[in-house]
Amino acid sequence: MRFSDVELGDDLPETHPDISMERVKLFVKSAYMDFPRFTDHEFAKAEGLPGAIVPGVMSQGFLAAMIHQWAPGAKIHKLDTVFRTTMVVDTSATCRGAVTDLNEESHLVEVDLTMLNHEGVTSVIGTATVELAD
């Protein structure tokens, strides 16, 4: 994906990341954040959560991965998210993005980001500033 290929309003190809317990366990071990609220449904419920939750940084990683799948080699200058509700482990997720601004001089692209949970509720919103090749 090059800057000249992109238009305002373009949708990024939707992704459906794997948020199974198996994947989340691999992630939290790698990230040194192996806490039971991420890996134990019963523990999380006892804390008042609906179940074990997907770590926020893992959700951010999925959104960044969506950008890179759309534009391999792109540089993400900034990825800014707001977490609105939890993503529960062992459910399903959908990542979406849309191009909302293009800077012709810097070749930076602004992208809206959303992550929806299995009920179609928006769990994460955000924006990214992405540099695309000429």
Binding site: L8, G9, T100, D101, D112, T127
Partner: peptide, 17 residues
């Protein structure tokens, strides 16, 4: 505090879409 939209981008989005 939780808004991430620039007003001019709202405008160009409305027109483009």
């Amino acid at each position: 505090d939780d808004g991430r939209a620039k007003v001019d981008n709202y405008c160009q989005w409305i027109r483009k879409k």
